[in-house]
Design a protein around this nucleic acid. Structure first.
Lengths: 388, 388
DNA sequence: ATTCTGTGTTCGGTAGATTAACAAACTCAG
DNA sequence: CTGAGTTTGTTAATCTACCGAACACAGAAT
């Protein structure tokens, strides 16, 4: 009859209990007075809340922390039984599955390479991922409470929006099927999130963007992509296609016609290596096999390699300017196989300051683990939102 | 001692009263049962709330609305004494000042042209604006409650963020000084907001974007700019410079070096008219004086004009693609002296579908009034936020 | 006039928090 | 070892903001 004032939630807890639970999950163990102060609650309220949460086995009391004077306070932390969460990364060359508890502690982790004959998600990748998933869940056992959420990171559009826009070269169906077929109970929510978005969240929570609530994660590798965090939350766009910077008009000048996804064709690492092969002279030794090798040559001071890397840095810097001129992020974090490389940084910065205003630019702090970690943290956030 | 659980607000009202007040302001008059249903409140609660709000002179009871059967219900609406708000637009060629009540009804309005010798805000513009402001306030009188907020729309960065970034050609100080010197009581909050952002908000509340919570307002005129609305709220960016698309790298291709603000130099209406003068042949009659005239010639079917307009539409479409590929807005609203023109639409759409995915593109519904109206609506929102 | 149906009020009750007062635990100084 | 000083936790009384149920009120149709 009456629309619920608070959205329906599994647990029916008062606001104060939710606050305490969330705080313990996001900021680790704390005493009652600490919690009371930070949440603006009174001691009697804490006296009601803590037993309630302990009865539900969501919180456990650990040691005690005593100050210089006065009675010592007992420490509370999230109980093991509060539950756990899965982060799954499935890409063209690798699959990873990680389990964390709701307070962000890792419980189990597995990964495996996938033979990379194709550039998209194959059936082999899917079955490998399912196996990893089973192994991780077995390792978790049942001492860690219920599995509360699963997030699959894949080079696809996020699954939240129903409308499908086909811009990337992958079969979205494959990943959606994987999400549906994962060996988890039916009542566990599973979503697919874009891998770049996941990496952005990871850098926000654990990495290079911890102090920036509004920033951008620019992934540069075989493909290019962008994750946008505004006010601590991911931007998805109307079709889940925000950050598809591969579609930026390029080449773009009075005399030239842009090509569809022309920017990716030019900035992707394959194009970089093609240009490399073209200008490489025999006196320089063997042509670098991959971007990794090219950057190593540049680091050794090899001049052709240096020139290629500098040019690439400038190009990425211009892409960054394109993004900055729309969003004005406080920070640009570079990631991905190529973007990760420290050698790029000066060139990128030079290009951005030349064309726009000063904005902090860094390399991601989490390397190739950013994506899974981001998936797991999105899962934690979702679980907590549902719980509180 | 204890941090306030709710942020400090002038009025100390219960949640339910705030809800009622807000609802009446944003959705116009309503009866108690209607309010109760939509806000999820009970009749006894309404019985407590309405007298409280009437005592504060925030709400007044008007006529009565009777259904087909049963007792007729009393209609309530925002009281005149609830207050009013000012929207001020100051540009290079025109100043406008508008007063609205908190429910969005216009109370008074004035505007004046400014001799446009310069491209920025002159002292003359400032004093003209102050005079308009005084006249409007005099016309409002004191039958409309307190002045609660003022928003100044100007082609500058918004004033909310302290960090200054100098990208546009204006003196930000001039506008800030205007804001500080406006003939309003000292305790009335005054902010400066970017004019394009204001226009975006106006199209969202009253115009072409009413059904889209996430969209983009692309202004194309003498200068180009972008207003970004995400989840119903303006995006400002870390330095208030979001939407500065004039800084996009252009020209941008393997062979060319982008110039600082090169895109504005190419897409601004002055550049358009320069190209026009260049290709115009004497057999076509006199060279069009301004963009307006050029578009009229195109509308008449004049082929050189048509070609120029088509090319311009394509160029704007590519800019739109650049924006879409970052944000994936559900809708792009075109505004500004040039962008407003219906003739552009097909060409813009052609360019976007060629390079990206299908996204709705429209022309703004509010014309040149968008900016002031947006300012006034931002002011209303701020006043309401402070009040509730 | 009576009945039916919505509108508004009165009364009593509940959930969730608070302040105030008190009891318990810990440190340190004599 | 004892007691002062300090902090933690509990208990009791109260307050605020809401709800449900019952009732009184007003208009339209029988």
């Amino acid at each position: 009859m009456n629309p619920a004032p608070t959205p329906p939630s599994r647990l029916d807890l008062p606001e104060s209990s939710r606050g305490v639970l969330r705080r313990l999950a996001t900021h680790g163990p704390a005493t009652r007075p600490q919690l009371a102060k930070v949440l603006g609650l009174s001691r009697p309220t804490m006296s009601a809340v803590m037993p309630e949460l302990m009865d539900l086995e969501l919180v456990s009391s650990g040691g005690s922390s005593r100050g210089a004077t006065g009675r010592s306070a007992v420490l509370y932390s999230l109980a093991a039984g509060a539950g756990h969460v899965l982060g799954v990364e499935v890409g063209a060359t690798r699959a990873r599955v990680v389990a964390h508890s709701l307070d962000g502690e890792q419980i189990a982790a597995r990964e495996e390479r996938i033979s990379a004959r194709r550039r998209n998600i194959t059936d082999a990748a899917v079955s490998t991922t399912m196996e990893l998933c089973e192994k991780v869940l077995a390792e978790v056992g049942d001492g860690h409470g219920p599995l509360r959420d699963v997030v699959v990171a894949a080079p696809t559009k996020p699954s939240t929006k129903p409308t499908a826009v086909s811009t990337s070269g992958l079969q979205p169906d494959g990943v959606e099927q994987l999400a549906a077929a994962l060996p988890v109970p039916d009542d566990v929510p599973v979503i697919v999130e874009n891998n770049v978005n996941c990496a952005a969240i990871a850098e926000h929570r654990l990495g290079a963007a911890q102090n920036q609530d509004t920033f951008v994660y620019l992934q540069v590798g075989v493909k290019i992509g962008l994750g946008i965090v505004v006010g601590g939350k991911l931007m998805h766009g109307a079709h889940g296609a925000s950050g598809e910077v591969a579609m930026m008009p390029f080449p773009w000048s009075p005399g030239e016609e842009p090509a569809r996804a022309g920017l990716e064709e030019y900035l992707g690492s394959e194009a970089l290596m093609a240009r490399c092969a073209e200008v490489w002279t025999s006196g320089n030794g063997p042509v670098p096999k991959d971007a990794e090798a090219l950057f190593q040559a540049a680091a050794r001071g090899q001049s052709t390699a240096r020139r290629l890397v500098d040019q690439h840095a400038t190009d990425i810097g211009r892409l960054a300017v394109g993004v900055m001129s729309v969003l004005d992020p406080g920070l640009v974090v570079l990631g991905g196989g190529v973007g990760q490389n420290q050698l790029l940084l000066p060139g990128v910065r030079r290009a951005t300051t030349a064309l726009a205003w000063d904005t902090e630019i860094t390399v991601g702090a989490l390397g190739e683990h950013a994506t899974v970690l981001g998936a797991v943290h999105i899962a934690i956030t979702r679980a907590l939102d549902r719980l509180t």
